[in-house]
Simulated scan of single mutants.
Amino acid sequence: MTAAFTVRVQDEIAEKLDRIAALSDRSRANLAAQAIEDYVAREEWQLAEIQAGIDEADRGEFASANELASVVAKYVKAARQA
Score class of each variant (00 low, 15 high):
Arg28Pro: 02
Glu67Thr: 11
Lys16Ile: 09
Phe62Ala: 12
Ile50Trp: 00
Trp45Thr: 10
Ser24Gly: 05
Val71Gln: 10
Lys77Tyr: 05
Ser27Val: 03
Glu49Val: 03
Gln34Tyr: 04
Glu44Gln: 12
Ile36Phe: 06
Arg42His: 08
Thr6Cys: 07
Ile36Thr: 06
Gln10Cys: 07
Phe5Arg: 04
Leu47Gly: 00
Ala35Asn: 07
Ala78Phe: 05
Asp58Ser: 08
Ala3Ile: 09
Lys77Ile: 08
Glu44Val: 08
Phe5Leu: 08
Val76Tyr: 03
Glu61Asp: 15
Val40Ser: 02
Asp38Leu: 10
Val9Thr: 15
Tyr39Val: 06
Glu49Met: 07
Trp45Arg: 15
Ala41Trp: 00
Val72Cys: 03
Ile54Pro: 01
Ala65Ile: 14
Glu44Lys: 14
Tyr39Cys: 09
Ala33Tyr: 01
Glu44Ile: 04
Ala65Cys: 14
Thr2Phe: 01
Ala79Ile: 02
Ala33Cys: 01
Ala33Gly: 00
Leu23Tyr: 05
Ala69Glu: 12
Ala33Val: 01
Gly60Tyr: 05
Ser27Thr: 11
Asn66Lys: 14
Asp25Ser: 15
Phe5Trp: 08
Asp18His: 07
Leu68Val: 13
Gly53Met: 05
Thr2Trp: 00
Asp11Ser: 12
Trp45Pro: 00
Asp25Lys: 11
Leu17Gln: 03
Ser27Arg: 05
Arg28Gln: 15
Ala82His: 10
Ala82Met: 11
Ala21Val: 01
Leu23Glu: 14
Arg19Phe: 05
Thr6Phe: 09
Gln34Trp: 05
Leu23Ala: 14
Gly60Glu: 12
Ser64His: 03
Trp45Glu: 14
Ser64Ile: 02
Glu49Tyr: 02
Lys16Asp: 14
Ala4Phe: 04
Glu49Asn: 12
Ile13Phe: 10
Trp45Ser: 09
Asn30His: 14
Gln81Asp: 13
Ile50Glu: 02
Ile54Ser: 03
Arg59Gln: 13
Tyr39Ile: 08
Ala69Lys: 15
Gln81Asn: 13
Ala63Ser: 14
Arg59Glu: 09
Lys16Gly: 10
Trp45Gly: 02
Ile20Phe: 10
Trp45Ala: 11
Arg8Asn: 13
Glu49Arg: 09
Thr2His: 02
Leu23Ser: 10
Asp58Tyr: 08
Asp58Lys: 13
Glu43Asn: 07
Gln10Arg: 15
Ala3Gly: 04
Gly53Trp: 00
Ala82Ile: 09
Ala21Thr: 01
Met1Cys: 04
Thr6Trp: 07
Arg59Met: 08
Tyr75Thr: 04
Phe5Ala: 07
Thr2Leu: 03
Tyr39Pro: 00
Leu31His: 02
Arg19Pro: 00
Thr2Gln: 04
Ala14Phe: 01
Gln10Trp: 03
Ala21Pro: 01
Ile36Leu: 15
Ile36Lys: 03
Val9Trp: 10
Lys16Asn: 13
Arg26Leu: 11
Leu31Val: 02
Arg19Lys: 12
Lys74Trp: 00
Val72Lys: 10
Ala79Met: 07
Ala35Val: 07
Ala69Cys: 09
Ala22Lys: 13
Ala79His: 07
Val71Tyr: 06
Trp45Val: 08
